[in-house]
Simulated assay, not measured.
Amino acid sequence: MAQQTVAVRGVSVRLVCAAFRISETCYRYQATLSDENAEIADWLVKLTAQGSDWGFGRCFHYLRNVEHQGWNHKRVYRIYCALALNLRIKPRRRLKRQTPEPLKEPIKPDQVWSMDFMHDQLSDGRCFRLFNVIDDYRREGLAIEAGFSLPTLRVIRVLDQLLEWRRKPTAIRCDNGPEFVSHEFVSWAMRRDIRIDYIQPGKPQQNAYIERANRTIRYSWLSKHLFDSLEEVQDYATQWLWFYNHRRPHKANGGKPPLMVA
């Protein structure tokens, strides 16, 4: 209203500010960060479009730790809300369960590896499985093996390939699946002097690290893409695993990717 009065009636700025009871500083103020705000908005739109499971925290950690941008988190969050990028929070169903044994947390790399299976389908309806292995300390993804059938010998082969370039873990944490309780797998672990930590039946929270990794795999790419062949699945999994270890921020690591943690 003050600016319109000055433009139409030719009244002085001092008189208009006194009439409308505003300061001359407020009248003359002009935003100087519009270009930078547009850059932040472009980053947020691009990050949430590439990974729809990314909320504000992961986007901010990516900008701060991976892209090394120094923007304040309040400013980024204000633009994040203005763009209506807030993710819907799904309410949790409260279930009464027996208290399981506490989760054993590692204190150094290659102390405990966790592994588990996942299931999905190709575009022609054929079912396939993923065998996932992570290092619990830094949540580092070690392997994602795709196959129509992943028996015990295939599991042992994947672990032998890992041990060619990784230090031997003290223990391997897994559920009570037939591939993990077989005589071949137990004998392999004894020869390697690796302890097998089986979780309690029906207590997947005792294997929380790999279960959380499975969820990330499911919502980041497995449920988003329809693959025509097993080779496409394996190629995409290998590329995503590199991105997960080198570029994707992780809350457990203070917002840094697993391989950026000292």
Rank of each mutant, 00 (worst) to 15 (best):
C59N: 07
L15Q: 13
L83G: 11
L122V: 04
V181R: 09
T152A: 15
N214H: 14
A208M: 09
R139S: 07
F56I: 02
R166L: 05
R94L: 10
R166M: 01
A143E: 04
V6Y: 02
K96D: 12
D160T: 03
D135H: 10
S114F: 07
E36F: 02
Y137N: 12
R212H: 11
H68E: 11
F117V: 03
N86T: 13
R167G: 08
A84Q: 15
K251S: 15
E140L: 00
I156F: 06
L241F: 03
W188T: 06
Y27M: 10
R75V: 00
V233Y: 08
R218E: 06
L33T: 15
R21G: 13
A189E: 13
R157A: 15
V8E: 06
K96V: 15
Y244L: 15
R138K: 13
R129Y: 07
R191M: 03
H246R: 14
I22K: 02
N132D: 07
I156T: 09
C17G: 03
R94E: 06
C81H: 05
L85I: 05
S12F: 06
Q69V: 02
P178K: 10
A84V: 08
A146S: 11
D124W: 10
N245C: 07
K256T: 00
R14P: 05
E140R: 08
N37G: 10
Q239E: 12
D160I: 00
E36Y: 02
L150A: 00
L241R: 13
Q30N: 09
G70S: 11
Y137T: 04
D124L: 10
P100F: 05
D42P: 08
G254T: 03
R191K: 09
Y29Q: 02
F243W: 13
V66N: 02
R88A: 08
S123F: 04
W188G: 07
A171S: 12
F148P: 08
Q234T: 02
T170G: 05
L103T: 04
L33P: 09
M115E: 14
H73A: 00
V233S: 05
F128V: 03
Q3M: 10
L87W: 14
Y209N: 09
E67N: 12
T48Q: 09
Q205N: 13
I22S: 01
W54G: 01
I89A: 15
D110H: 14
A189V: 00
I194F: 14
A146D: 06
K96Q: 14
I79F: 00
R166E: 05
V8I: 08
R14Y: 08
H183F: 11
L230D: 03
R138M: 11
R129K: 15
L122W: 09
R247D: 04
L159G: 07
I210L: 01
A18G: 00
S34V: 14
V76F: 04
W71P: 03
T238R: 10
R195V: 15
L85T: 12
S52W: 07
R75L: 03
Q205F: 11
A252L: 09
S52H: 07
F227H: 04
R21H: 13
R195S: 12
A252R: 12
L162S: 11
F227D: 01
R94D: 08
L87M: 07
Q200D: 11
K96H: 13
P258G: 03
R192I: 02
F117K: 10
M118R: 10
G255C: 08
D120Q: 06
N214G: 03
L159R: 08
P109Q: 14
P258N: 01
L33R: 14
Q234H: 09
G70F: 01
M1A: 10
N65A: 04
L103H: 01
